[in-house]
């Protein structure tokens, strides 16, 4: 298990907290909460060590496209980059609905 942290600057606040996904094989759980500041804080706990670069690439890309100030916790059990992006987008959707 590896713990990774990331931070991004952001302007738009997250409307409401949201929870998506399950820590099951090939999937992940994400908890979204409003951020106390104008930043996005991401903490990833992943089952598989050594994928920090890929996580950074996926999250950099996502938060370049989505401006949202949030506290985000990810519990990962081997989700592919595609699944990670989908779950992140789903979480934002749930938060706004």
């Amino acid at each position: 298990m590896e713990i990774l942290t990331f931070e991004y600057t952001a302007a738009k606040p997250l409307p409401r907290r949201a929870h998506v996904g399950v820590v099951s094989s090939g999937d992940l759980e994400i908890l979204f909460e409003p951020s106390p500041d104008q930043r996005t804080h991401v903490v990833v706990r992943t089952r598989f060590d050594g994928y920090g670069e890929i996580w950074k690439a996926v999250l950099d890309r996502f938060f370049a496209q989505h401006d949202v100030a949030a506290k985000i916790e990810i519990n990962d059990f081997g989700a592919t980059p595609g699944v990670v992006s989908l779950r992140l987008a789903q979480g934002l959707e749930v938060s706004r609905s």
Binding site: M1, H19, V22, R45, T46, R47
Partner: peptide, 9 residues
């Protein structure tokens, strides 16, 4: 976590 397993919230 002490057993290297990712918990669920």
């Amino acid at each position: 976590a002490p057993q290297n397993i990712v918990p669920q919230s």
